[in-house]
């Protein structure tokens, strides 16, 4: 069953075409990694798919329901099943960390099992060794911690689809390993994933399919079951891919 259908997505900035006829589907439980050059439009594509930036043309269907052209209640339901992790982490600056983590859950479920969720949050905080940070404001935290907290927030949502923009960006090697381990565990539990990354390690570990974008178009679509998967992965020169984590 397709959890996601991306149909002929085009996106224009004034007269310039930034996304050009993007078309693919994601099966339930599958993970797709999208790689590409710095200005290939991959992060924008995630925002379009995540219901944040409407496309100029085309449709995004989540479990057959349009992410943009649906009644408010349906759109609410769709968003409760999608977790979006931004490249920089993105936390609301006027809320403390506890309020930040609980906001999407509290907003959609007024009768929240607060003790259960709090236990789960504490487990993740301990997994990432984040210390006593729940009552702090985001401004008091380094970028690495903000980024890791965005994974905690996404994980406690228990989504059906996780959209992640550059999961390894800004992280040191130890934290990269922790994030990869967590993402693999989440993926193994059957959650579908759509990830933007140029990390070959991540593509090998998590990718069921690998899409390569260039100037707003998908130029390569390779399945991990393809006998030439590793070969194709190795032929992509990293100097062509401005992957920040690879540069680190």
């Amino acid at each position: 069953m397709n959890i996601l259908e991306v149909k002929n997505i085009n996106w224009y900035l004034e007269d310039e075409k930034i996304l050009d006829d993007i078309d693919f589907t994601l099966e339930e439980g599958q993970s797709i990694i999208i790689s590409g050059t710095y200005e290939s439009g991959k992060s924008l594509l995630l925002k379009v798919i995540g219901g944040i930036t409407p496309p100029s043309h085309g449709r995004v269907l989540f479990l057959g329901r349009d992410v943009y052209e649906s009644p408010d209640e349906t759109i609410d339901e769709i968003h409760q099943q999608i977790a979006f992790i931004f490249q920089e982490g993105a936390l609301l600056s006027n809320l403390n960390i506890r309020e930040n983590l609980l906001l999407p859950l509290k907003y959609h479920n007024p009768r929240l099992d607060l003790p259960g969720i709090t236990r789960e949050i504490e487990e993740f905080i301990s997994y990432f060794s984040l210390g006593h940070i729940l009552d702090k404001r985001p401004a008091a935290l380094p970028n690495v911690k903000k980024k890791l907290l965005s994974f905690v927030r996404a994980a406690i949502l228990h989504p059906r689809l996780m959209i992640v923009d550059e999961p390894l960006f800004n992280l040191d090697l130890d934290n990269q390993k922790l994030v990869l381990k967590l993402l693999r565990k989440i993926h193994k539990s059957g959650i579908s994933m759509l990830i933007v990354s140029n990390s070959r390690d991540l593509i090998k570990i998590l990718g069921d399919r690998w899409l390569v974008m260039d100037r707003g178009r998908i130029v390569q679509d390779v399945s991990s079951s393809d006998p030439d998967f590793d070969k194709k992965l190795n032929t992509i020169s990293l100097t062509d891919l401005v992957g920040v984590e690879d540069e680190i």
């Binding site: 925002k47 995540g50 219901g51 944040i52 930036t53 759109i75 609410d76 769709i78 968003h79 409760q80 999608i82 979006f84 931004f86 920089e88 993105a90 936390l91 609301l92 600056s93 906001l103 999407p104 907003y107 959609h108």
Partner: peptide
């Protein structure tokens, strides 16, 4: 500027 509005949209808020 800090993508906090995008974050709210991603939550369906």
């Amino acid at each position: 500027v800090n993508q906090e509005i995008d974050l709210l949209l991603s939550f369906g808020i």
